[in-house]
Simulated scan of single mutants.
Amino acid sequence: MQLEIRPDPAEVGRARRWARSRLAGSGIRDDETLAETLVLLVSELVTNAVVHTGCPAVLRLSLPGAVTEEATVRLEVDDTSDRAPVPRCVDGDETGGRGLALVDGLADRWGWSREGAGKRIWCELDRCAAGRREPAQVCDGGQVAYEGLAYEAV
C-alpha cells in the first residue's frame, strides 16, 4: 500500500488519516499502542520529507497478512532528495529538530538507504514489542519520559 505525498505541509494530516484507515482494515485496533505509535511515526517521517526536501514523496505501509502477536509493521518514505537524514541535537526552546530522535526512540528498528536519485527512510514496529512498552509518564518540567527517553510535550 502506498500514498503519494505532495510537498505541502497539509499532506501530513492526510498521511495520518490514510495510515489509520489502513490499520483499521488490518485487524490492528486504533487504540493499540502499535497503532498510536505508527501514526506518530508516519507524522514525523512525512513531515521531514515535506519540510526538509520540498520534493514529492511516497509513503508505504507494509502490514502483515495475518496480524499475530509477533506481527511486524514496516513504514517507508521515499523522496527524490539526495540529502541524507541528519539527526539534530536541539535546545529545549527549539520548535523542531526532534523528528529522528522520536523515530529512534519509538521504532524497534529504523534506517535509510539511497534509492535512485533520492533516498528511503524506513522504520519497523513489532507488535509484541509495542505491547510491552511502558506508557509515557509526565516528568517535572513538562517532559514526557518514554522508555527512558525524555521528550518535551509542547
Rank of each mutant, 00 (worst) to 15 (best):
D8A: 03
G142V: 02
G116H: 08
G148M: 04
P135C: 01
L40H: 14
G96C: 13
S26R: 02
G92H: 09
T53V: 10
A35D: 01
L59S: 00
V73I: 05
E70C: 04
R74G: 03
V67D: 05
S26M: 06
L125C: 14
T80C: 12
P56L: 08
A49H: 04
D126K: 14
S113H: 13
A49R: 00
D79V: 06
A136M: 03
E11H: 03
P135K: 01
E76W: 10
A15F: 05
G13A: 08
G65S: 13
W112G: 07
G27W: 13
T68S: 15
R16M: 03
T33E: 05
N48S: 03
K119R: 15
E147Q: 14
W110D: 04
R120H: 09
P135N: 06
T53F: 05
S113P: 08
V73D: 04
V51L: 12
G105E: 03
L63E: 00
R60E: 10
V77C: 07
D91S: 14
V144E: 01
G99S: 10
I28H: 08
A10F: 00
A10V: 04
K119A: 14
T47D: 05
V103F: 08
V51Q: 12
G131K: 13
L23T: 01
G131I: 03
V42H: 02
V73A: 12
T72I: 15
A117I: 14
A57P: 01
T33N: 12
V73L: 06
A10Q: 05
D78R: 13
S62P: 00
E147I: 03
R109F: 07
A117H: 15
P7W: 02
D30T: 11
D140G: 03
G25K: 12
W18A: 02
